[in-house]
Amino acid sequence: VTLFVALYDYEARTEDDLSFHKGEKFQILNSSEGDWWEARSLTTGETGYIPSNYAAPV
């Protein structure tokens, strides 16, 4: 399992994006889409796309 942590807060701009807060942890589901990764929040259980430059490996 690849775990990442949010470096900044992010507010979803589309219904496919995932809103999150700094410090929140994610499981990365798909990182082959370039700058946007499909991720599941370990806090909320929700799935959506996150900007890859807002996350770092745990």
Results as ranks from 00 to 15, higher is better:
Val1His: 13
Tyr49Asn: 08
Ser31Trp: 14
Ser52Trp: 14
Ala39Thr: 03
Ile50Arg: 01
Val58Cys: 11
Thr2Lys: 12
Tyr8Thr: 06
Thr44Arg: 04
Ser52Asp: 02
Phe20Trp: 01
Asp35Ser: 10
Ser19Ala: 06
Leu18Glu: 00
Ser32Lys: 11
Lys25Ser: 07
Pro57Trp: 06
Asn30Phe: 08
Lys25Glu: 09
Ser32Phe: 10
Glu33Asp: 15
Thr43Met: 10
Ala6Arg: 00
Gly45Val: 01
Val1Pro: 12
Thr44Asn: 06
Trp36Lys: 11
Leu29Glu: 05
Ser41Val: 07
Ala55Arg: 02
Asp35Cys: 14
Glu38Tyr: 15
Gly48Val: 03
Arg13Leu: 11
Pro51Cys: 10
Thr2Phe: 12
Thr47Pro: 01
Pro51Gly: 03
Asn53His: 13
His21Met: 12
Tyr10Met: 02
Gly23Pro: 01
Leu29Trp: 07
Thr14Arg: 15
Ala39Arg: 00
Thr44Pro: 01
Arg13Gly: 08
Ala55Trp: 05
Val58Met: 12
Pro51Ala: 03
Ile50Thr: 01
Asn30Ala: 09
Asp9Gly: 06
Pro51Gln: 05
Glu46Asp: 09
Arg13His: 10
Tyr54Asn: 02
Leu18Phe: 09
Arg13Asn: 09
Thr44Ser: 10
Ala12Leu: 02
Glu38Lys: 13
Glu15Thr: 12
Leu3Gly: 03
Ala56Tyr: 09
Thr14Phe: 15
Ile28Cys: 05
Ile50Ala: 00
Thr43Gln: 09
Ala12Lys: 09
Asp9Gln: 05
Tyr8His: 08
Leu18Lys: 01
Trp37Phe: 08
Gly23Lys: 00
Ala12Arg: 08
Asp16Leu: 14
Val58Glu: 09
Glu33Tyr: 11
Ala6Thr: 04
Ile50Val: 06
Ser41Ala: 07
Thr14Leu: 09
Leu18Gly: 01
Thr14Ile: 06
Glu33Cys: 14
Asp17Ile: 11
Trp37Glu: 00
Asn30Trp: 08
Thr14Cys: 15
Arg40Glu: 05
Ser31Asn: 12
Val5Trp: 07
Pro51Lys: 06
Thr14Gly: 15
Gly48Leu: 03
Tyr10Lys: 01
Leu29His: 05
Trp37Leu: 11
Ala39Leu: 02
Asp9Trp: 11
Thr44Glu: 01
Glu15Leu: 12
Pro57Glu: 07
Tyr8Asp: 06
Ala39Lys: 00
Glu24Tyr: 04
Val5Cys: 08
Asn30Gln: 09
Leu7Ile: 09
Asp9Ala: 06
Ser32Asn: 11
Gly45Tyr: 06
Thr44Gly: 02
Leu29Gln: 05
Pro57Gln: 08
Phe4Arg: 03
Val58Trp: 13
Glu24Ser: 04
Arg13Lys: 12
Leu7Thr: 04
Glu38Phe: 15
Pro51Phe: 06
Val1Asp: 12
Tyr49Met: 14
Asp9His: 06
Gln27Leu: 15
Glu11Trp: 09
Ala12Val: 02
Tyr49Ile: 08
Phe26Met: 06
Ser31Cys: 14
Ala6His: 01
Pro57Asn: 05
Glu15Gln: 12
Ser52Leu: 06
Pro51Asp: 04
Ala6Phe: 02
Asn53Gln: 11
Leu3Pro: 05
Gly45Arg: 04
Asn53Tyr: 12
Ala55Ile: 15
Lys25Gln: 12
Ala12Met: 03
His21Tyr: 12
Gly34Glu: 12
Glu33Gly: 14
Arg40Leu: 12
Glu33Ile: 11
Tyr10Thr: 00
Leu42Ala: 05
Val1Cys: 15
Tyr54Met: 09
Leu7Ser: 03
Ile28Gly: 00
Pro57Ala: 09
Glu24His: 07
Arg40Asn: 03
Val1Ala: 13
Leu3Phe: 12
Leu3Glu: 08
Tyr10Gly: 00
Asp16Trp: 15
Ser41Trp: 02
Trp37Gly: 00
Ser19Val: 03
Leu3His: 09
Ala6Ser: 04
Asn53Pro: 06
Glu24Gly: 02
Val58Leu: 14
Gly45Asp: 05
Thr14Trp: 13
Thr44Cys: 04
Ala39Gly: 05
Gly23Phe: 05
Tyr49Arg: 15
Val5Pro: 00
Phe26Tyr: 01
Ile50His: 00
Glu11Gly: 05
Pro57Cys: 06
Ile28Val: 09
Tyr49Cys: 11
Asp9Arg: 04
Arg13Val: 13
Gly48Phe: 04
Arg13Gln: 14
Ser31Arg: 14
Ser31Tyr: 13
Pro51Val: 02
Gly23Gln: 02
Leu29Gly: 03
Ser31His: 11
Phe20Ile: 05
Tyr54Ala: 14
Arg40Ile: 11
Glu24Phe: 04
Leu42Ser: 04
Tyr8Phe: 12
Glu15Arg: 11
Glu11Thr: 13
Leu18Tyr: 04
Thr14His: 14
Trp36Ala: 05
Glu11Val: 14
Asn53Leu: 09
Thr44Tyr: 02
Thr14Tyr: 15
Thr2Ala: 11
Arg40Gly: 00
Ile50Tyr: 02
Phe26Asp: 00
Val5Lys: 04
Gly23Glu: 03
Phe26Ser: 00
Ser31Asp: 12
Phe4Ile: 06
Arg40Ser: 05
Glu33Lys: 14
Leu42Gly: 02
Val58Tyr: 13
Val5His: 05
Leu42Ile: 10
Asp16Phe: 15
Gly34Arg: 12
Phe26Asn: 00
Gln27Phe: 14
Lys25Met: 15
Ser31Val: 12
Glu24Lys: 02
Glu33Pro: 12
His21Ile: 12
Asp16Ala: 14
Leu7Gly: 02
Phe20His: 00
Phe20Asn: 01
Phe20Met: 10
Leu29Ser: 05
Asn53Asp: 10
Asn30His: 08
Asn53Ala: 14
Phe4Val: 10
Thr47Glu: 08
Pro57Val: 08
Val1Met: 13
Val58Asn: 06
Tyr49Ala: 05
Ser52Cys: 10
Ala12Phe: 03
Pro57His: 06
Gly23Arg: 02
Gly34Ala: 13
Glu15Lys: 13
Ala56Leu: 08
Glu11Met: 11
Trp37Ser: 02
Lys22Ser: 06
Ala39Ser: 03
Arg40Lys: 12
Val1Ser: 13
Ala39Asn: 00
Asp9Glu: 06
Tyr49Thr: 07
Leu29Met: 09
Asn53Cys: 14
Ser32Asp: 11
Ala55Asn: 02
Tyr10Leu: 03
Trp36Val: 07
Thr2Arg: 14
Val1Tyr: 14
Leu3Val: 14
Gly48Met: 03
Gly45Leu: 07
Tyr54Gln: 04
Val58Gln: 08
Tyr49Gly: 03
Leu29Ala: 05
Thr43Cys: 13
His21Arg: 15
Asp35Tyr: 13
Gly23Tyr: 05
Ser41Gly: 03
Glu15Trp: 09
Glu15Met: 11
Ala55Gly: 06
Arg40Thr: 11
Gly45Gln: 07
Glu15Ile: 11
Tyr49Leu: 14
Ala39Pro: 00
Ser52Val: 09
Leu42Arg: 02
Pro51Ser: 05
Glu46His: 12
Val5Phe: 10
Asp16Arg: 15
Tyr10Val: 01
Glu46Gln: 14
Pro57Tyr: 06
Trp36Ile: 07
Tyr54Val: 05
Gly23Ser: 03
Trp36Met: 11
Glu11Asp: 10
Ile50Phe: 04
Gly34Thr: 11
Leu42Asn: 04
Thr47His: 08
Val58Ser: 07
Ala39Met: 05
Tyr49Ser: 06
Ser41His: 07
Pro51Ile: 04
Glu46Ala: 13
Phe20Glu: 01
Phe4Ser: 03
Pro51Met: 06
Lys25Ile: 15
Asp9Tyr: 05
Asp16Gly: 15
Glu24Cys: 06
Asp17Cys: 15
Ser32His: 11
Ile28Lys: 03
Ile28Leu: 07
Val5Thr: 06
Leu7Glu: 03
Lys22Tyr: 05
Arg40Gln: 08
Ser41Pro: 00
Gly45Glu: 04
Ile28Tyr: 02
Asp17Gln: 15
Ile50Asp: 00
Tyr54Trp: 08
Trp36Thr: 06
Ala12His: 05
Leu42Asp: 03
Glu11Lys: 11
Glu15Asp: 12
Thr2Ser: 11
Gly48Ser: 01
Tyr49Lys: 14
Ala12Tyr: 02
Pro51Thr: 02
Trp36Glu: 03
Ser31Gln: 14
Val5Ser: 04
Ile50Gly: 01
Leu29Thr: 06
Lys25Leu: 15
Ser19His: 07
Gly45Cys: 09
Ala56Ile: 13
Ala6Cys: 04
Leu7Val: 06
Ser32Ala: 12
Glu33Trp: 11
Phe26Ile: 06
Ser52Phe: 10
Ala55Lys: 02
Thr43Ile: 09
